[in-house]
Structures are given as C-alpha cells and as structure tokens.
Computed example of a mutant assay.
Amino acid sequence: MSVIGDDVADRAESVIREVIGNSVRHSGATHLTVAVTVDDELNVMITDDGCSISADDERHSAVANMASRAEQIGGDCHLTTPPGGGTAVNWTAPFGPPR
C-alpha cells in the first residue's frame, strides 16, 4: 500500500518525464538531479545545469502543464534558477483532497 494515490503518482510521473525530456532536448545540461521526498506531501525537485527557463514565462507549454497538474490536485509548481545557473523545478502535491 502506498500513501501516494494513483492520481498524484500519475501526475508526478508525467511532470518528471516532461522535465527530463525538456532538459535533455533543449537545455544543454550536462547534469540532472531528480529528488523525490515523501513527508507531509509529495515533493519532486528536479535540477539541471543547462540554460534557464523563466519561471514567469506563462506561455511556455511545459511550465503551464506542470503548474496545471499540480493545481488540479491542490499542489504547487515553482521554477527557479539556482545560484550556479540552470533550472530547478519544485513540484509538490498533497496526499489528501485538494487544499
């Protein structure tokens, strides 16, 4: 038995695949890290050292898709640029009903 429901797991898997695919195809990254933690919520943190994507670029379909997947289940998605450059995606989702 898992604390993560199928809906949350499916959305998290889609986000992970999308971020990795975009990083490999478009960012020029040489390193990519995926960290998944389970505490009070599911937290997926993916970082790369490629060219950054703007967290404010709402038109970018990948950003919109990730944010939508999180929001539909009461979660969040934030993109930042780490101090050394690249992109960090922090995607979170609660285990229970949407907040």
Rank of each mutant, 00 (worst) to 15 (best):
E71R: 10
G75R: 03
N90I: 14
Q72S: 07
T33Q: 11
G85C: 07
R69C: 00
L32E: 05
R69D: 00
C77Y: 03
A70V: 02
V34L: 15
Q72D: 09
C77S: 05
S61A: 11
T80C: 08
T80Q: 11
T37E: 15
I73D: 00
T37S: 14
S52F: 11
S52Y: 13
S68T: 11
T87Q: 01
G74N: 03
I46V: 14
A55K: 10
H60Q: 08
W91G: 01
L32V: 12
I53R: 10
N65E: 06
T80S: 15
E58L: 05
C77R: 01
V44C: 08
D76A: 06
T33N: 10
E41C: 06
T87V: 13
D57W: 12
E71H: 11
I53D: 03
E41L: 09
L32Q: 11
A62W: 10
A70M: 02
M66C: 10
T87C: 07
G50T: 08
M45C: 08
L79A: 00
C77F: 07
W91Q: 00
P83T: 10
I53T: 12
D49F: 11
V89A: 01
M66G: 06
D76H: 14
G50C: 07
V63A: 03
S61G: 06
I73E: 02
T81H: 10
R59G: 10
C51V: 12
L42D: 03
D56P: 02
G75N: 04
S54G: 12
L32I: 13
T80E: 13
S68G: 04
E71G: 03
D39F: 07
H78Q: 12
D76N: 12
R69Y: 11
E41P: 00
D48G: 06
A70G: 03
V63W: 06
I46G: 02
R69W: 13
S52E: 10
T80K: 10
T92Y: 04
A62D: 08
V89Y: 02
V63T: 09
A55H: 14
W91L: 02
H60C: 08
I46Q: 03
D76T: 15
L42H: 05
L79K: 00
N43R: 14
A70F: 01
T87I: 07
I46Y: 06
H60S: 03
G84R: 13
E58D: 12
G75V: 01
T37K: 12
D57Y: 13
G75Y: 01
C51Y: 13
T81A: 05
A70I: 01
L79V: 11
G85Q: 11
H60D: 07
S61I: 09
D48P: 09
G75M: 02
G85K: 12
L42G: 01
M66D: 00
